[in-house]
Design a protein around this nucleic acid. Structure first.
Lengths: 212, 212
DNA sequence: GTCTATACAAGGATAGAC
DNA sequence: GTCTATCCTTGTATAGAC
């Protein structure tokens, strides 16, 4: 069983730090390779090389290619979910449903940029993974989706979002718009703050010339 | 060389029709497998089985897995590109740039629904293909992208689309919004016409409650 | 055109030394 | 913790019969 002490044991912190650092390097290398090559073409040898290791050494940290990839994706959703929740919960009680949704949009984009390669890695490769991994990630993905669902439904109820469109379409549109930002070409040129403003405008008001 | 007579020879039409039919079955099976399993997990054996053939028989039609997959994706872009162009060109000369863009949106969605599994197959797997295939598809993808670029820029110039947003962001937003529709869950419930109306509304006016 | 049988390469996984 | 060496499965691709 290839399980390093994630933590909680009485081992010297020094050793844990090194192990954890390597582990992180591997995860980030894996994310990069996934984005560049896709799940199919990503070989463990590539990941190992990018992390400065030999192929066999990966098995000290992970049981399999699948479990490694799973961890890359899981980390991404978890981070994003947490980040967005915190941002929304920090709002004053007086915030409207629309304001909460807008804050969530900003939080999502902050997390996306912060995650680097892990964001596109998730968007691109989820559907290509073996069923077992998809199933194992499904709960957290669902929980996140439900969170958005509540935000959006509340904004519809408050009258801040149009009610004349199928709610499922509405949600799909908002969420896929946000997810796709990670795939945009020169996205790095924009700061998270700029991107948040722009996306809030696009999603809420559309590309049409604003009526005045 | 596994090249069936695409056509143009003096062979009896009967035989050609059968070969073409099988070829089509293979392509559609491949599209379905790509969507369901992803490029990684899609085995030629799966495709063959779904098309009612044995693995080896595929090589009568295609030189390799890669060339088969390439053809699936190429057909999709080509079809969509042509369809959208025709729709836009049929508009009266009096049509504004905004109206042309709106028509293109409708045409894109019609093509998307018409293509069935080929649409999501393209969206999902393009980035995972071997470089050679990506390169070979790049020209037609670029041409299509440029077409959109012109439509959008013209609508900005005519004042029908907001000019206060980075054009690259604007284009990315519109195009990725459209592409993602193929990935939506219960999209089958909506007709192409409904979807076109809804997407035009969302893209041009946003999700915010329309101001009156 | 389609099948069966098989060659062949690639890459994930394991064992054990250091 | 990391390396080297190796096993073993999988799946693409080919050959040749029917």
């Amino acid at each position: 069983m290839a399980q390093p002490n994630t933590n909680g044991s009485a081992r010297p912190t020094r050793a844990l730090a090194k192990s954890a650092a390597t582990r992180r390097r591997v995860i980030e290398a894996a994310a990069r390779m996934l984005v560049e090559q896709g799940y199919a073409a990503t070989r463990l040898a590539d990941i190992a090389a990018a992390a400065g290791l030999q192929t066999g050494s990966l098995y000290y940290y992970f049981d399999s290619k699948e479990s490694l990839v799973e961890e890359v994706l899981r980390y991404g959703v978890q981070f994003t979910h947490t980040h967005v929740r915190v941002i929304v919960e920090q709002l004053p009680d007086s915030a409207t449903a629309g304001e909460r949704l807008a804050a969530a949009v900003g939080g999502f984009l902050e997390a996306t940029l912060e995650l680097g390669n892990m964001s596109p890695a998730h968007v691109r490769t989820f559907h290509q993974l073996p069923t077992e991994i998809q199933d194992s990630l499904r709960p957290i993905r669902r929980a996140f989706a439900r969170f958005w669902e509540e935000l959006i439904d509340a904004a519809v109820a408050s009258g801040e979002i149009r009610a004349d469109i199928d709610p499922l379409v509405l949600r799909s549109f908002i969420i896929s718009s946000l997810e796709q930002v990670a795939e945009w070409p020169g996205r790095a040129r924009h700061s998270a703050r700029d991107l948040s403003d722009v996306m809030r405008t696009l999603i809420f008001d559309g590309v049409g010339r604003s009526r005045d």
